[in-house]
Design a protein around this nucleic acid. Structure first.
Length: 376
RNA sequence: GGGGAGAUAGUCAAGUGGCCAACGACAACAGACUGUAAAUCUGUCCUCUUACGAGUUCUCAGGUUCGAAUCCUGAUCUCCCCA
């Protein structure tokens, strides 16, 4: 993997760059649609590629390990072959499931014991095992196994958890170095900064992660319920420590506003389920603000969903029709909504990149923050 | 014409003397959702009130009772069976 920094904003810490992987180029800042099970829910690969313009998607180690199982993916020749997505893929390690499945897992020094959320069976994830699985899944970028701490989180717990994540990281790095890619193209391992919302912990973690010399670095444990101000403060602090010449990935973020703020703090990569999950629940992100398309007020509004969208679907379909689809539970409602939201997110990062290169990012960002986050 | 069953809030549907403004489901309305246990979840849902609470209800009209959606009488309407 290769990262080139192409432009920097003079007013903020925003930057524009490009990442080269064996599956192609990624222009940063970038938003990565989440496809937990190897598929972005309600969106076809061709739509992702041609309409939305996605450059990289996510998969999830824990979920793919349970179903279809590592052996099947290996037999298919890796996830790219299995799901037909020939551009870059990033897999999360299962660290987020340590957080989201907290009621059915047990954390130990050695690793994490999960009970499958599907059938209750026991599974053990160690840092080494997670690297092995991710080697077999074959994502271009793989993540270290970490504990994504909850919010709120006691200082004492956050500290212990962070140190555990650091020890796990060393084991991940070791295993990664000892193993090879399974399908002939290169993979790279991103370590993850933790430390909850504690400045001293974040600093310590960022310094430790920076010292690993990875090709890219991630910030985890944020956007788990803390106030936006805390998220931004931690992000800024960490970005200032992480190497400038490597991409920075803010995991799980966020709203369009969060993303713009993250970009201005020096983040290059984002992923979030919000555009797809919320789409399925009727939340439509448009260039003019946020719409709850289920609301009664749209029932006879035959104007385009977003006449200023660069997504043709949004300019041609009416709010009333989309409301009808979502309201009646038509699958097409989820599809159109998901494509729209992802298109909007991709448009957002693409525009941001342009503005950074042009040198007008700050003014544009301010305008967009208000516009995109307002409720219609 | 004869016999039988039934009418409960937007819909379906429990309740068959007090714990009933009335179970539940659906619909409707609103909200939540940030490295996806989510096409999920939460709330409201007779009227008025932010709420506390108050006021009207269980086809209609009488009646029994301290007390009725629940018992009695009649009316109206619906459905089924036989001729």
């Amino acid at each position: 993997m290769q990262f080139n920094l192409l432009a920097e904003c003079k007013d903020t810490k925003a930057r524009a760059g490009e990442i080269f992987t064996d599956h192609g180029k990624i222009e940063t800042p970038i938003f990565m649609p989440v496809g937990t099970l190897g598929a972005v829910k309600a969106v076809q690969m061709s739509e992702l590629k041609n309409q939305i313009g996605a450059q990289i998607i996510l998969g999830n180690t824990y979920h793919l390990y349970l179903r279809p199982g590592t052996a099947i993916i290996e037999k298919a020749g890796g996830l790219h072959k299995f799901n037909g997505w020939d551009k870059p893929i990033l897999t999360d390690s299962g660290g987020f499931q340590v957080h989201s499945l907290s009621s059915i897992r047990k954390i130990k020094e050695e690793g994490v014991e999960f009970r499958s959320h599907i059938d209750g069976s026991k599974h053990f994830f160690s840092p080494e095992g997670v690297i092995d699985i991710q080697r077999k899944i074959g994502a271009d970028i793989i993540m270290a196994f970490d504990e994504c701490t909850p919010y709120p989180c006691e200082l004492d717990y956050a500290k212990k958890s962070m140190h555990l994540t650091h020890r796990w990281l060393e084991r991940c790095v070791k295993r990664f170095a000892e193993t090879e890619n399974a399908y002939g193209y290169s993979q790279t391992l991103f370590p993850i900064v933790q430390g909850s919302v504690y400045k001293n912990l974040r600093k310590e973690s960022a310094e430790f992660i920076a010292s690993m010399g990875a090709e890219g670095n991630a910030i985890g444990g944020l956007s788990v319920g803390e106030p936006d101000e805390d998220m931004y403060e931690m992000t800024e602090l960490v970005c200032d420590i992480l190497p400038k010449d490597k991409p920075r990935y803010l995991m799980g973020v966020g709203t369009p506003g969060n993303i713009l703020e993250g970009i201005s703090l020096g983040i290059d990569m984002f992923d979030c389920v919000m555009p797809t999950r919320n789409a399925r629940n009727g939340m439509i992100f448009t260039t003019q603000g946020i719409i709850n398309i289920r609301n009664e007020k749209w029932k006879d509004d035959f104007s385009p969903i977003d006449e200023y969208s660069d997504c043709e679907l949004m300019r041609t379909h009416s709010k009333a029709f989309l409301r009808h689809l979502v309201h009646t539970g038509e699958i097409l409602g989820a599809q159109i909504s998901s494509i729209n939201n992802l298109s909007l997110y991709m448009w957002l990062v693409t525009e941001a990149r342009k503005k950074i290169v042009e040198g007008t990012f700050m003014v544009w960002k301010k305008e967009m923050m208000e516009k995109l986050m307002r409720r219609l």
